[in-house]
Design a binder for these strands. Structure first.
Lengths: 356, 356
DNA sequence: TCTTTGCACTCTAGAGGGGGGAGTGCTAAC
DNA sequence: GTTAGCACTCCCCCCTCTAGAGTGCAAAGA
């Protein structure tokens, strides 16, 4: 999908005659079905072309030389490489759109919870259940955070509980130390003051506004306001403690023989727990339109050497909110998975739409 | 630790002479160290007693008959059974309290975040890191929920965002459908009204109170109040969407050979994801005082057949808040793990103490 | 020139077959 | 009650062997 791939693809297009393409397609499909290296004999039977195994062998040798296939060892059949899958997906695979009743079923399974987080959880489980792979949904990032409401509540000592309502339906809270005591009434005033100057503004704007206000009007501000601003500063200071993504059904990955190695599997699970790498990968799909696929080594992460990641951004009200998708072995049923990820992204986007 | 075990133990005490106990102790320690079945030869060397292997064999046969040991097969050494571990832990193990500097190190690693959830996360990671097992912390249950503050915010359509602050420092929010539209001013009034009658009360009290109020004063209540009550009803209706526990380092369990079977491991991980069974098990430890240990089959769950669970309730300000602990293979270094779990529970309790 | 046939070759997976080693239980002597 | 001796059992590792699958290559055929 990148330029270099486009280039590679079209050059391949030229080099690969129709027969070779059909053979590759048949091989990949067969391998995805059975998980066994495919030999020339099988392929000559399955391809529909009436070619002898020897001829097929020659063609396979060519495909191997082009880097689309490999054999695990001398006398096994052949298996697609990442490049092989890439060509298969980009030019050989015909993806059927999901039939209407299937879409309806998915829609039903997603549910209509009003809470965004519950919806994402549901979408993640849905993806995992339907594809039998691991499902992921990244929660919306807040590079543009509109502040809806602020609330301060006094706790014991100098601690204050700060509640922020951002982007209309998301609530965050944290506890800060203020360094001095405030009465409930003072906090109420601070709450009111901040709600007045903040409401509807971007978080960074609010921050700047606060700082400016503070410098300009230092002398005429009473102690309480000063405190409110300090508090707000502290409250906005730390980045939001986002629970950046929701993962479901990781353990399904244990079902696939090609990932059965304990060490690799552990690394993979650790990557899920660490989140960072996966989030970084998914972020790349954020700006793309439609379904995005990373096959094995393409992702750039060693951990995913044996894995493919199929993602799609989801958007609501015209704004891209996040990315969802699945992670599984490179040998996955792309023809099924792709439309499912695609539809799920649309469904989640629609379900998140605030007007209902 | 249950009565039946007490009974068993004391009868064992009588039946097991000192020598047999020492042999059992040595065997268990050795097995915990190496993970290999222990034979009579090794044991006769390690025990410190100058006994020939043959004598040791006789003693081992007795221990096996009592159900404290088993041999995996005829010509392997012997391995402790769950009962064997139980006896070892209850009467043979001497647990050294953690040295002060170790406690200080743990204290440092726990950090002093003000947010309860962050603290629990930290405690869970701490347990996992220090013991090299999976760490668990259950989040406080709210059978007694004191309402501190309520806030209503209007969203699009008839949706209202409800924010509840309970037990002083915990914030929950959900979105409800009200069935009618409210203006911001109306919602503000409702907020004020509810905060007046709710603040500091138990959630169930608030509920009852609301219903009573509603019946008594139906006629004189204006529409808005009615709406507020309806909203509150809906808001309190669904149980809190608790994220009931925090687990860290599950993948460490993949390091232990005795759990290396894919199927079992998957069942184990699924149990972590499902949460229910584990929570149920941990709930049993909630009422106990101090460290509680479930060895293998003792837990009553097939999934934990090969696992032990070491837990301790943690409390703050005299009230038990939750349970924390570790899950690992039955073959774990109990002498290290027990004091660590114990101390971590105390540290977490102290860190959660609201006065600071 | 492309395709096919035939053939020798390679490699794996699985079965079978000993040893070696570790550990046991039993018996008889101390 | 303890020990030495001994026969026995069982696992594990290594080796071999074979069947099977698949390959590449060369030479014949279309």
């Amino acid at each position: 999908m990148t330029d270099s791939n486009e280039g590679k693809r079209s050059s391949m297009d030229k080099r690969l005659n129709e027969r070779a393409q059909l053979l590759l397609k048949t091989l990949v499909e067969r391998y995805i079905r059975d998980g066994q290296p495919v030999g020339s004999r099988t392929l000559s039977r399955d391809s529909g072309l009436s070619l002898s195994p020897a001829t097929v062998r020659n063609a396979m040798a060519d495909l191997e030389e082009m880097g689309l296939l490999v054999s695990p060892h001398t006398s096994a059949g052949r298996v697609p490489t990442a490049q092989g899958y890439r060509f298969f997906i980009d030019t050989l695979l015909q993806v059927e759109p999901l039939p209407g009743d299937e879409v309806a079923r998915l829609r039903g399974q997603l549910g209509d919870d009003l809470d965004p987080h519950a919806l994402m959880q549901s979408a993640s489980t849905l993806l995992s259940d339907v594809t039998r792979l691991a499902g992921i949904v990244t929660v919306p990032r807040h590079d543009e955070v509109r502040l809806r409401h602020v609330e301060f509540l006094s706790l014991s000592g100098d601690q204050v509980l700060v509640i922020l309502v951002i982007n209309d339906r998301e609530v965050q809270n944290r506890i800060i130390r203020t360094g001095r005591r405030f009465s409930d009434a003072q906090l109420q005033q601070a709450t009111n003051y901040l709600n007045e100057i903040c409401a509807g503004k971007d978080l960074s704007q609010v921050r700047e506004g606060l700082l400016r206000e503070m410098r300009q009007a230092r002398e005429r501000m009473n102690e309480m306001m000063m405190g409110a601003i300090e508090m707000a500063e502290k409250a906005f200071d730390a980045g939001p403690p986002d629970e950046d993504m929701v993962v479901s059904g990781q353990t399904r990955l244990m079902e696939y023989g090609e990932l059965a190695d304990m060490d690799r599997l552990r690394q993979l699970f650790d990557a899920f727990a660490r989140k960072r790498d996966i989030l970084h990968l998914l972020d790349q799909a954020l700006t793309a339109r439609g379904v995005q696929i990373y096959i094995g080594e393409e992702s750039g992460y060693d951990i995913f050497e044996q894995c493919s990641v199929v993602t799609a951004p989801y958007e609501s009200d015209g704004r891209v909110l996040g990315v969802l998708g699945v992670i599984g072995p490179t040998r996955m049923a792309y023809d099924r998975v792709i439309p499912i990820v695609d539809v799920t992204a649309r469904l989640l986007g629609a379900a998140l739409n605030p007007r209902a």
